[in-house]
Design a protein around this nucleic acid. Sequence first.
DNA 1: CCATTATGTTATAAAAATATAACATGTCAA
DNA 2: TTGACATGTTATATTTTTATAACATAATGG
Lengths: 107, 107
Amino acid sequence: MSIDEKNDRIFKALAASSRRTMLDMLKDHPQTTGELCARFPALDRCTVMQHLKVLEQADLVIVRREGRERWNYLNPLPIKEIHDRWIGPYAVQAVSLLGRLKEDLEG
Amino acid sequence: MSIDEKNDRIFKALAASSRRTMLDMLKDHPQTTGELCARFPALDRCTVMQHLKVLEQADLVIVRREGRERWNYLNPLPIKEIHDRWIGPYAVQAVSLLGRLKEDLEG
DNA sequence: CCATTATGTTATAAAAATATAACATGTCAA
DNA sequence: TTGACATGTTATATTTTTATAACATAATGG
């Protein structure tokens, strides 16, 4: 899979707020699929699993099977990747834009 | 509009690679809608305009009308916002994860 | 072993995003 | 003024994403 495809999967995975919330939930400690489902009472279990699949395919969630349970682990590396190669530079540009604005106001 | 809604619009706007490419194109200098269309031969003009609308509603593109032309400006601030309040912390976590891995390998 | 629990699979419905077509408006320049 | 050009609008088709239902497997504990 190309870098662009990977990038795209990551951005697409982050596009849904439920999925971002799932990542937030996994940030402190891994959780089983059942636990995650319990924390999304509004969503059907199948829907939660579909979201997990999208996250897994973007490599944002890594799965370890243990008995009849499935532990979902957060993998923050792909986020760091898009951060480094795409988002970071924009943030820098935004800062320098603010800097220029400030200069303009002062000067 | 709430902060969460804004956040969501930004992430959704960034979810399509055509739109990210458009932002990349606007990074150096603003461009008219026509210029942008010319640089996306694969896309219909209406499609390009729809994408621009999504970017505009996420406040990622700011529009200035001049005669019969429409100039599209990049606004990197919303990207900096999601960077600061969401993506950055994950990137930090990824770094510390790599750090721990390194320690484990060394220790 | 067997009922329960946790998860997986396949199909399908509903909603949203993407792409295009057809027509409309406003501006410029000759 | 008038025709060409740049953009805008509305409707609709296509594709993708999101949500559910129904059924299936597989491990655990009594």
